[in-house]
Structure formats: structure tokens, C-alpha cells
Amino acid sequence: MTTTARPTTLAAVLAAHGTQCGCEGACGKPHKSRRCKATDKPLPLHAGPYPPRVTDAQNAAVPTADLRPWCGPCWRAALLRELEHRALLRRTELDQAQLALFTPAALAAG
């Protein structure tokens, strides 16, 4: 019985973007050539969106055409930076919402 090999998402991403990490600095490291030099040897690359999304569900929902190859260290660092950025936005939003609770107009109405 013969089986036909089905192309994987990673194979499609590597065919479209090459076998080098597609980070371009999202990890926070200043890559000299604007791209990380990591290749699929010795550790394999994986496919993920650029830039990473906050949740796994959002990352999984990205169409294959929008994926880039990532090395593990760059992916983890870029994801952490994105999570920290989103947390900062949420904190700022919360601070702004709470300021309205303590304005003189709000206190006089309360």
C-alpha cells in the first residue's frame, strides 16, 4: 500500500519564506541582517504569525499565507513581548477607567 505524502503547514511556510527564522526583530534582539540567522538545523523551526497573537486560539486561527518560520527562542521572546505589551495596554485602560471614579464631578454626583 502506498501513501501519498501530504504537505504540512510548516512545509508550505518554509517553501514560501525559506528555511531561516522570520523574526525580523519582534523578539527584541537587534538581528544584524534584520532577520534571525537561525535555520532548521539543528533545531527545527515552526510556523507562527508575525507578530505573534496574544492567545493560542488567535495564533492557530491565522491563515497559512500569514505565517512565518520561527526559531524557538525568537518565538518565545516575541510572544512574551506581545503579552507584556497587551498587559500594559490593559493596565493603562483600567487606570483611565478608575480615574473617572475619583473626579470631583463623579464624587459630587455620588
Rank of each mutant, 00 (worst) to 15 (best):
T3E: 15
T3I: 13
T3S: 14
T3K: 11
A5N: 12
R6P: 01
L10K: 11
L10H: 04
L10N: 08
A11L: 01
A11T: 05
A11E: 15
A12W: 00
A12E: 03
A12F: 00
L14C: 06
L14Q: 05
L14N: 04
L14R: 06
H17P: 00
Q20E: 04
C21W: 01
G22I: 00
G22C: 00
G22D: 02
C23Q: 04
E24Y: 07
E24V: 05
G25L: 01
G25Y: 01
A26E: 03
A26P: 01
A26T: 04
A26S: 08
C27Q: 04
C27Y: 00
K29N: 05
K29R: 08
P30E: 08
H31G: 01
H31L: 06
H31E: 01
S33Y: 02
R35E: 03
R35V: 04
K37R: 11
D40K: 04
P42M: 08
L43Y: 05
P44Q: 12
P44A: 15
L45W: 07
H46I: 09
A47L: 08
A47I: 01
P49A: 13
Y50C: 13
P51G: 13
P51Y: 03
P51M: 10
V54M: 11
V54F: 05
T55R: 08
D56T: 12
A57E: 14
N59C: 14
N59P: 01
A65Q: 10
D66Y: 06
P69Q: 13
P69F: 02
W70F: 02
C71F: 00
G72L: 09
G72F: 06
P73M: 13
P73I: 09
W75F: 11
R76N: 10
A78E: 05
L79Q: 07
L80G: 11
L80A: 14
R81E: 11
R81A: 14
E82N: 06
E82R: 12
E82S: 12
E82F: 05
L83Q: 15
A87Y: 00
L88A: 15
R90K: 06
R90W: 00
T92K: 12
T92Q: 14
E93T: 09
L94H: 10
D95P: 03
D95S: 13
D95G: 11
D95N: 11
D95T: 14
A97S: 12
A97H: 06
L99K: 13
T103N: 13
P104W: 10
A105S: 15
A105I: 07
A105E: 15
A106C: 11
L107W: 08
